[in-house]
Amino acid sequence: MSIISTKHLKKYYQDKSVTVKALNDVNFQVSEGEFTAIVGPSGSGKTTLLNIIGGLDSPTSGSVIIDGTEITNLSDNQLIDYRLKHIGFVFQAYNLIPVLTAKENVEFIMLMQNKPRDEREERANALLEAVGLKDQIKKRPGEMSGGQQQRVAVARALASKPRFVLADEPTANLDSTSTATLLDIMARLNKEENTTFIFSTHDQRVIDRARRVVTLEDGQIISDETR
């Protein structure tokens, strides 16, 4: 059963007198537990598609249905609540809060959800252990390597037990060792906890590990390969 479904999704931008078709009639479904990479050249619409699925941008037309809810009809506040409860985000530049420790960064989402302290601490510890950072919980982002920061970001994305994780170029700033470690962790979480991951990526190492690869070009899906 698909947890994400887009129908005739279009996103057009007006750039001076030219209409840019960032997404042009994209029909796309993601089922629970998928490990999907959305690939394509720069400007193909990968990030736009992720933004719209993540409720960070609105389409020009078409619909985005997540777990049966049409999210394009939601208000700004409903979308914020929706993102908080249902989506985990991993960004290319990690985007951790530099003044908080690794553990506090992971707890941050749960604090927004008003989870009790015990539950927050237990889950933050468990997630940081799962990403191999049990001994780094008191460190601030500035004291960690890029790979470690991105692992904290993955732990943070999973803190709210989201329905799926959207990862935008998560390995773009990482060396090969860190990339391999991160992919191992995400693959394990996908397999063991059935967490759904959707990546936008250029990185062949990510593409190689994905079980489904959707290729976009000029705002359209030109191939959808399941391995």
Partner: peptide, 16 residues
Amino acid sequence: KRELGMILCVGMNKTK
């Protein structure tokens, strides 16, 4: 800006 963008992305409401 990026950090504020992140916290808005992950679900901190604008009032906060």
